[in-house]
Nucleic acid binder design. Structure first.
Lengths: 199, 199
DNA sequence: AGTTAAACGGACAGTGTGTCCATTTACAGT
DNA sequence: ACTGTAAATGGACACACTGTCCGTTTAACT
């Protein structure tokens, strides 16, 4: 659930089924978190606040999530999983079939759309350098690498993270809210760079 | 001192001259901080540790710096100021005279060199979204904007921060230390993108 | 209804924060 | 040199957050 990657059913873990109270609390936590991250500054949210808002004890919260960023990641994963499906087997230009430059541009558009709709969560998921260690980031890296290889770009590995850099949530937040750029303007700019880059 | 920008002598502030003990403590703080940031994980350094390491009380430290990131910024500014001078009036291709693509490539090389030599400080300076509010970042934005205008790139303002994104310290740290890329490889890649981008 | 294991949440000790204020110290003017 | 003044210092205080422990509650299965 943390990566969204199509995992081939890990060695038959007998799943003891989640207890009803546990499920209820999990739902309460996620609902309260969605609300909190949208309201307060995502960078300052504490386990204390999350537990209080969800109406559960702190230990209950710690049972599932190690820190506030993990809660945001759980909330995000759900949305990012859909994008991953589109990339793997959706219609072109997002999915396979279109030329690499078009696919890259389409990926940027979709990723920025995600960012636009869930920016507070994306910011909350970024405590420290956690961005690079998230499962979604790893998936994106693989996708970009494929596109680079398809386009015969030399030294694709050195390009991957450079091409993902424009999607850093804090950067987007800065451009959008501090510099006053519209999401359309940013999208146009990034998509243009993508097409030009892939020749 | 916090921006390095050539400020035109702010309205004759009668500068009461810094007391000797104050100067001594400032030096101790900066020296101890340089050491600490290089040793421990820059993201976890506290005001407590800095004060202890410098041999001063915490209140003394708070008198000058609001948080650990501010100490790192002060340490970095000194180095970044030299790069700013080069950009403004140094020899081409870093300074004026070369075509924009070459200047952009040279800027990337110099900035990454700075990052390579002071990565712990750069990481320490990034508590939260502080990166974009630093004076050095503002200077870089202006510089990049000039190059974009020179190269007749449409909508330069939307491109500025996108072009600066590859210089994010956490990104460089990831590529360098997590992915094992050499600094030369990263430099070559970024400089190549710069030339291609400016046509 | 009874049993069992999972889940819960109040409480605790520890760490870091930011500010206050009594004391010390450097420097200028005599 | 001496002294008055304002700046500088650092220990202390009150508060917030952390992560874990453990006695108690509760769901689910027999």
């Amino acid at each position: 659930m943390t990566t969204g990657l199509p995992v081939p059913t890990p060695p038959a873990q007998a799943k003891p089924r989640e207890r009803a109270d546990a499920a209820r609390n999990r739902a309460q936590i996620l609902a309260a978190a969605e609300e909190l991250f949208a309201t307060r500054d995502p960078a300052t949210i504490t386990m204390d606040q999350l537990a209080k808002a969800a109406g559960v004890g702190r230990a209950t919260l710690y049972r599932r999530f190690p820190d506030p960023a993990a809660v945001a990641v759980a909330l995000l994963d759900e949305h990012e999983y859909r994008l991953q499906e589109q990339l793997l087997s959706g219609p072109p230009p997002l999915g396979p079939g279109a030329p690499p430059g078009e696919r890259l541009a389409a990926f940027y558009v979709a990723a920025i759309d995600l960012l636009e709709r869930h920016l507070p969560l994306a910011l909350g998921a970024e405590t420290g350098a956690a961005r690079f260690t998230s499962g979604a980031y790893g998936f994106w890296r693989i996708h970009i690498r494929t596109l680079l290889v398809d386009a015969d770009v030399p030294d694709p590995d050195a390009h991957i993270d450079l091409l993902l850099a424009p999607l850093a949530p804090e950067l987007y937040d800065f451009q959008r809210n501090r510099m006053g750029l519209s999401s359309e303007r940013i999208i146009a700019c990034v998509a243009g760079m993508a097409r030009r880059f892939m020749r």
